[in-house]
Design a protein around this nucleic acid. Structure first.
Length: 619
DNA sequence: GCCGTTTTCGGCCCGACTGTTTTCAGTCG
């Protein structure tokens, strides 16, 4: 029962509901802008980095872009009573099997409706199999505007869909990075290729990635050769060794599916319009739509080729772009020039999400976002030192970690092994273990290695909010990270009180991986964030942005919300091996997406200031 | 149905690719 509910209110399901509404309106014929509004709302919810149901519970449903008074109040009905009379009254006009077919890529509302109507596919539970059978029997090819090719394509699309829906659909960002790098390296080997960029959600560093988008800039060629070079690169791309299928391949774009069923889109462009192309292909969709609407109001039309004046625009300082007289378009080789032409401050990819970044850029209020180089230390590192921990040990010794930290130009690190397992050990034994560890680290510290260290510990928050460490053991650490590692499904209030209690212990300085989410595997637990942010601020506790590939926790939307509550954050890796320390890069991207500046992040402080903070030394 | 630095009314992004057509509709990003 509980699982059904979660499924019913998942972002994916809500998006599908709204998309079904758009389809029903399309098929019954209403003002097309109402249809677009529903589609926009569906897109918006599908790409949220938090659960829409949680946002509704916090009373912030109407803050989601594209959710206005009408759709918002219908959704409220739906969340409250599991149904909306308005949605139901519209949806019942169309056979339910139409909405099921629409889940298959390349089948939209019109094709779905036609297939259902002509072939009488009215059983929602079996419609996909029924359609497949109709295809194999040649019935689809007989229909008007369908043919043998489309019949074959439908079968293929269904097979791919069934394969895909059996596994996770979006992968954590770091996994997508690995795949993208392989393709980028492959493309760079082509002598016609000058530059390759990963774009789309990958460039915006969204926590989970659906498709991989890539742009290629060709080396300069004579004008009449450009088309030929585009074609050569497209041909090369679709021969990528790990491709399982070529989805489409035209003159300037192509899509392939690579193992294990990931779609990769490629676009090619020459240098003079490459900036326009980067801008266009980076998205997000809401950002681009907002930007184009803004441009329209100023008399310009935007595309991946550049900026086209709608009327005769003479004068002005139009030298930022180069004017192509033949096509009446201003071309841009860099994004900076593209935004500048529109009178906007440059907007970093990470915050192009269609919230209020265009308004900010217009007023030159886009903050300088945190950079990787600003990070001075990592305070959540697991070593190989065996203190009989409750969870896994790391791979490297304290000394090895210090050496690696030095390579990363860190000034300090924090050793945050898991607390000793409480079961099977007496309090006295735990205290002894902690004491020995403290002595061990102090021995290493005496070698006066240039990277300084703090003695931390990652401590479980028990179900009742106590921490899993005997009182006397606290003397042997500089600071504690508290985090939940079990019993994730308590209700919001119990969970909130549990965390608040843990935060009240002495030496607690960090709330670790605060939502407990595992991307694609486990939703985070619910907390009253207003209370958590307030408690952390009051007790001078940092909220962790954990860079572990499956976590990327805190989610970016909560980071941004935290800033409005004046929360302070800390960027850590949770590394269990030295190579993983480099993953801090992913945490930085989460912070950027949350609009963090350098001084929003505690571990950008220099060693002396940071030491005062973490040891709670007051002046 | 949504939205706001010319607006609470009157607008609403833009182009590529494919299959089935003979100029286009549907889908996608």
């Amino acid at each position: 029962m509980k699982n059904d509910e979660v499924e019913k209110f998942s972002n994916k399901e809500i998006a599908h509901l709204l998309r079904s509404m758009a389809a029903a309106y399309l098929l019954t014929g209403v003002n097309r802008f109402r249809i677009i509004a529903y589609e926009k709302a569906a897109d918006s919810i599908e790409h949220l980095t938090r659960e829409v149901k949680d946002i509704w519970q916090e009373g912030k449903l109407f803050e989601i872009p594209g959710i206005g008074s009408a759709i918002g109040s219908h959704l409220e009905d739906y969340f409250r009573s599991r149904k909306s009379r308005h949605f139901d009254s519209i949806l019942k006009k169309i056979p339910g099997s139409v909405f099921v077919l629409m889940k298959i890529p390349t089948i939209g509302p019109k094709k779905a409706y036609k297939l259902v109507r002509e072939l009488k596919l009215l059983n929602s539970a079996t419609v996909i199999e029924d359609l497949k059978q109709a295809c194999t029997q040649g019935e689809v090819a007989k229909l008007e505007t369908f043919g043998e090719k489309s019949e074959k394509d439908i079968v293929e699309a269904i097979n791919l869909f069934e394969k895909k829906s059996a596994k996770i659909e979006r992968m954590p960002l770091p996994y997508a990075f690995v795949i993208a790098k392989e393709i980028i390296d492959y493309l760079k080997k082509n002598p016609r290729v000058k530059r390759v960029d990963a774009l789309g959600s990958l460039r915006r560093m969204v926590a989970t990635i659906g498709d991989i988008d890539i742009a290629v800039q060709i080396k300069s060629h004579k004008v009449h050769q450009v088309q030929k070079v585009y074609k050569e690169i497209i041909d090369y791309f679709i021969k990528f060794p790990k491709k399982v299928k070529v989805d489409n391949a035209g003159e300037k774009k192509a899509s392939i599916i690579v193992h294990p069923n990931i779609r990769v889109d490629l676009r090619v462009q020459d240098e003079k319009s490459y900036g326009s192309m980067l801008q266009y292909f980076t998205g997000s969709k809401p950002h681009n739509i907002n930007l184009r609407e803004y441009a329209l109001k100023n008399g310009f039309s935007l595309s991946e080729y550049g900026i086209k004046p709608l009327k005769e625009v003479r004068s002005k300082k139009l030298e930022v772009g180069s004017y192509n007289k033949k096509s009446n378009i201003y071309e841009f080789n860099s994004e900076e020039k593209f935004y500048d032409f529109l009178g906007l401050q440059y907007i970093p990819p990470e915050i192009r999400e269609g919230t209020n970044e265009i308004e900010g850029a217009l007023r030159h209020r886009i903050p300088k976002l945190i950079q990787r180089e600003d990070i001075k230390g990592d305070l959540h590192i697991h070593s190989s030192y065996n203190l009989k921990p409750s969870h896994d040990l790391g791979n490297n010794t304290y000394l090895e970690i210090l050496k690696k930290a030095s390579q990363l130009n860190y000034q300090y690190v924090g050793f945050a092994d898991h607390n000793p397992k409480l079961s099977g050990l007496s309090s006295h034994q735990v205290i002894e273990i902690m004491k020995l560890r403290n002595q061990e680290i102090n021995k290493i510290r005496k070698k006066s290695y240039k990277v300084k260290s703090f003695i931390g510990l990652e401590v479980d928050i028990l179900p009742d909010g106590r921490i899993s460490l005997p009182e006397g053991a606290i003397d042997y650490v500089d600071y504690l990270i508290v985090a939940i590692h079990s019993l994730f499904n308590l209700d919001l209030e119990t969970m909130t009180n549990r965390v608040l209690r843990a935060l009240s212990y002495p030496k607690v300085k960090i709330l670790g991986h605060p939502t407990g989410r595992l991307l694609g595997k486990r939703e985070g637990y619910e907390l009253n964030w207003t209370k958590i942010f307030a408690a952390c601020r009051q007790s001078n506790i940092a909220i962790e942005i954990n860079s572990w590939p499956d976590r990327l926790d805190l989610p970016d939307l909560l980071v941004r919300e935290g800033l409005t509550h004046k929360a302070k954050f800390m960027l850590n890796t949770d590394a269990h091996a030295n190579s993983q320390l480099e993953g801090i890069f992913y945490g930085v991207s989460v912070a950027k997406r949350g609009w963090c500046k350098k001084n929003d992040i505690i571990n950008t402080l220099s060693y002396e200031k940071f030491r005062n903070w973490i040891l709670d030394i007051r002046y």
